[in-house]
């Protein structure tokens, strides 16, 4: 059992606050992805959990034990670094065995575990090589094998795939997901790549400006963003936003369209995903600007009421720049945001 509880953790570097009072609970064997743009504090949070950084305030609990005062080696964690950190003076075998030797395990057990994890990561034929003789993808595999061999309660991964080329990244992503699901460890995975986050995570914590904006399942984060930031950060292309004003009849006026919505205040932001609009007789009056056929569908960038508005439409659609379209939002997919707090309503 290794539940991770982060209570009120803050981190300040001089006058700069990297993390504002973070509260997060990661359940046992969960795959949690910390997602955000660079500088949002996601790596700092991971390093605080690892013990490579000390929090300015707050508590970190792993498996019911308070660990924020403990060095990394006493936390029951293993970590995979962005640049792999495979030791160049040791063979692949000795790299994987490194942590096991520190634990003073018997040689037979070390051999067994090294061979098993090497097999798992498909590097058993590389065990006698040095890091200088490996490709980036192979080094990545060694780094993961070295972490897995420790049989840790928690595996921490800091952008482990960001240095691989696109094809290799896709392959490793699928492989990592399988291996980590079988290993029954709790995983915290830091990335700025939303596709990686969506495909790997049980739960995504979207971070922005040193705060966790939303922590929920990938589909929930995608469908019901808790804040305007989440909607514009996740999804490619991102969500469309249009200002809405409440009319005398209680209906919301959005770019000439009358929609029903929550009766909270006088102005709101209307939001819709580009794939949740369709061509209809009634809808936003949209002028097509850029047409990008992508095969499965066509991305049409339009102008609605002077605002940028993207729509993912069927690729059979014949449309040219300058054409006027009528785009109707699917009513069950409409989301509303408070323009002041930027939170979902």
């Amino acid at each position: 059992m290794a539940e991770i509880v982060i209570r009120n953790v803050a981190k300040r570097f001089g006058s700069f606050t990297a993390l504002h009072s973070i509260d997060l609970t990661i359940t046992d064997q969960e795959f949690m992805v910390l997602l955000g743009a660079s500088g949002c504090g996601k790596t700092t949070l991971l390093r605080i959990i690892a013990g490579l950084e000390t929090p300015s305030e707050g508590e970190v609990w792993i498996g019911g034990r308070r660990v924020d005062h403990l060095p990394p080696r006493e936390r029951g964690i293993a970590m995979v670094f962005q640049n792999y950190a495979v030791f160049p003076h040791l063979t692949v075998f000795e790299n994987i065995a490194f942590g096991l030797r520190m634990k003073k395990l018997p040689q037979a057990e070390i051999d067994k575990r090294v061979n098993r994890t090497a097999e798992l990561m498909h590097i058993e034929q590389l065990l006698k090589r040095y890091s200088g003789q490996l490709s980036g993808g192979q080094r990545q595999r060694v780094a993961v094998a070295r972490a897995l061999a420790m049989e840790p309660d928690v595996i921490l991964m800091d952008e482990p795939l960001s240095n691989l080329d696109a094809l290799l990244r896709l392959e490793m992503r699928a492989e990592l997901k399988g291996v980590l699901a079988d290993s029954k460890t709790t995983t915290i995975y830091v990335t700025h790549d939303q596709v990686e986050a969506m495909s790997l995570a049980d739960r995504i914590s979207v971070m922005n400006g040193g705060k966790i904006v939303q922590a929920a399942s990938p589909v929930e984060v995608y469908r019901n963003p808790a804040a305007r930031f989440v909607g514009s950060f996740i999804g490619n292309p991102p969500m469309n936003f249009l200002p809405a004003r409440r009319g005398a009849d209680g209906q919301w006026q959005v770019a000439g369209l009358s929609l029903s919505g929550p009766a909270t205040r006088d102005t709101l932001d209307f939001a819709i995903r580009p794939e949740d609009v369709e061509i209809a007789s009634e809808g936003f009056r949209a002028t097509a600007r850029v047409i990008e056929p992508l095969g499965a569908h066509t991305l049409v960038t339009t102008e609605v009421d002077g605002k940028l508005f993207r729509a993912v439409l069927d690729s059979d659609l014949k449309v040219a720049p300058g054409d006027e379209l009528r785009l109707a939002p699917k009513s069950d997919r409409i989301r509303w945001f408070d323009p002041e707090t930027t939170l979902a309503v």
């Binding site: 690892a50 490579l52 080696r73 670094f81 950190a85 490194f98 942590g99 520190m102 634990k103 070295r146």
Partner: peptide
Amino acid sequence: IPLEMEEAAWTLGCNRWQ
């Protein structure tokens, strides 16, 4: 020597001196 190397060693059971 990247600091990551040392940090990797720390997470694998080493204290600073080891």
